[in-house]
Every structure is written in structure tokens, then in C-alpha cells.
Design a protein around this nucleic acid. Sequence first.
DNA 1: GCCAACGTTGGC
DNA 2: GCCAACGTTGGC
Length: 154
Amino acid sequence: MNYWLVKSEPESFSIDDLKKAPKKTTFWNGVRNYQARNMLRDEMKVGDEVLYYHSNAEPPCIVGLAKVVKEGYPDPTAVDPKSEYFDEKATKDNPRWFMVDLQFVRKFDKPLTLDDLRPIKALAKMELLRKGSRLSVQPVTKAEFEAVLKLVGD
DNA sequence: GCCAACGTTGGC
DNA sequence: GCCAACGTTGGC
């Protein structure tokens, strides 16, 4: 079992959007970064738990939990010329970009802001809190994941 | 809206 | 294969 954190701008797809989605599930398309792509394609497994983070929000915060319900498969928007995520170098035989399916698990009663997270010793090395961290899909250690849940009162 | 910190692109 | 220029992310 692995743990992850995904970023989403609430204006484009918030955790409430995920909760309202059919089967509370969505495909996590549009990631166009190789490091993130490799994790989506190779490492995220069904059942893995995912922290859901709102970036460019006021304030930015971890708002809840999701889980992986389908493992990496080609992102069809990469080969769709009409999509904003179209990549002319992607083909059906060489999809280049991948995505997973995520399902809503729960929304925290109180979202955890960066200010909530920064003082926590167990989270000192968390990728999210690293200066200049831009990865939209990040690995989270078990200890970090448990520390986050502890903060919301579990 | 600013800008630091990245990642990518492309000329050489 | 280097690296300057450029585009993007995302906190502030």
C-alpha cells in the first residue's frame, strides 16, 4: 500500500466535484509532467490512498481523501486535438501521458492549511512543504500520511 | 499580480 | 550535451 498527494485547483476540479461525480470517481487526466507521469503509470496501485490538495486556493490546503480505483492507463486527451491537453507528440501506440481513476473517500471537517502542516515534525520532509515544490502528483510516506490523519483527529 | 523555482525547448 | 530563453506553477 502506497500513499500519494494530488493537487487540483478547486476552480477546475475540487473535492466537492469529485464527491458529486458519477460513482464519486474521476479520471485524473491532464498531468503533463514526466515525474508525475511515471508515478501515475507505474507506481499508483488500486487501493492506494491519496491526499487531496487544493492549490491556488485561499488558503491552499489538504481537503480530504481519495483512493486509486484504476491503475495507470493512457490519457485520451493527449491524442484529442480538441482537448486543451492535446500533445501532438502523443500517439495511440506511444501514448506518452497516463492517468489513473480516483474515487472520493472523505472530506475533512477542517481542511489542513500549509500553516497547519509546517510545524509538524513528522512532515518536515514532506514534498508538498518543500520550497518550490511543483509536482502535481507526489509520493507521501506512511508516517507522513498517518501524521496528516492524526491532525484531522483520527 | 508578483516572482522564485522549476521543467522544457531548441540553437549551437 | 550544454545552457539561455521561455513558459508554467503556485504561494504569497
